[in-house]
Simulated scan of single mutants.
Amino acid sequence: MGVFTMMVALSSFAHNGEEVNENVLRAFNKEFADAQDVNWEVGKTVLKATFRLNGQVLFAYYQETGNLVAVTRNIMSGQLPITLLADLKRNYQEYWITDLFEISAADSTNYYITLQSADQTIILKSSGVQGWQTFRKQKAS
């Protein structure tokens, strides 16, 4: 599942009272044995667990088969890799950060950041730590 496809799937949750299946629960409990305050949402293509682990709020996304698709967490800009933080400071000084999160999936970690100025909102994504690419731009209304 590509990152863009996953992003679309992650945004389409509608809690419909469905139970979380045993495959997913078993996989989650194995991967995140010390998780606390676990809440589940059932989406069209994935199941989302929101939970606390080691003082952080995390989101884990599973396929119904129990395969872990991705783990995300909101982060502070100081938690970005140095190269990505330096690129932001160099190229986006006139923007402020409104959202920043990390996605760990398979063998990669990507970052998504929403930047806002008086004129526009930009969502950037990273592919690893090599720099930012524009994911979406929107003019201020």
Results as ranks from 00 to 15, higher is better:
residue 45 T to W: 00
residue 14 A to C: 08
residue 131 G to R: 13
residue 78 G to N: 09
residue 15 H to P: 08
residue 112 Y to P: 02
residue 9 A to K: 03
residue 71 V to F: 03
residue 6 M to C: 14
residue 16 N to T: 13
residue 19 E to R: 14
residue 89 K to S: 09
residue 78 G to L: 02
residue 5 T to M: 10
residue 54 N to M: 04
residue 47 L to I: 11
residue 102 E to T: 14
residue 28 F to I: 04
residue 116 Q to L: 15
residue 89 K to T: 06
residue 35 A to Y: 06
residue 57 V to P: 02
residue 134 T to Y: 05
residue 35 A to P: 11
residue 71 V to I: 06
residue 121 T to C: 10
residue 79 Q to N: 13
residue 96 W to F: 14
residue 36 Q to Y: 03
residue 118 A to I: 06
residue 27 A to L: 05
residue 32 F to I: 08
residue 104 S to P: 04
residue 107 D to F: 06
residue 59 F to E: 07
residue 79 Q to K: 14
residue 30 K to M: 11
residue 107 D to L: 08
residue 51 F to A: 13
residue 112 Y to V: 01
residue 30 K to T: 13
residue 115 L to S: 09
residue 91 N to T: 02
residue 100 L to A: 02
residue 132 W to I: 06
residue 10 L to K: 10
residue 62 Y to T: 03
residue 57 V to G: 03
residue 139 K to R: 06
residue 110 N to A: 04
residue 131 G to K: 11
residue 91 N to G: 04
residue 97 I to A: 01
residue 105 A to T: 13
residue 103 I to N: 03
residue 117 S to M: 02
residue 31 E to K: 04
residue 70 A to I: 15
residue 54 N to I: 01
residue 21 N to K: 03
residue 45 T to L: 00
residue 115 L to N: 05
residue 119 D to P: 11
residue 81 P to H: 07
residue 75 I to S: 02
residue 41 E to F: 04
residue 114 T to A: 01
residue 105 A to E: 03
residue 21 N to R: 07
residue 64 E to K: 08
residue 133 Q to N: 07
residue 45 T to R: 02
residue 99 D to F: 08
residue 33 A to N: 09
residue 72 T to F: 00
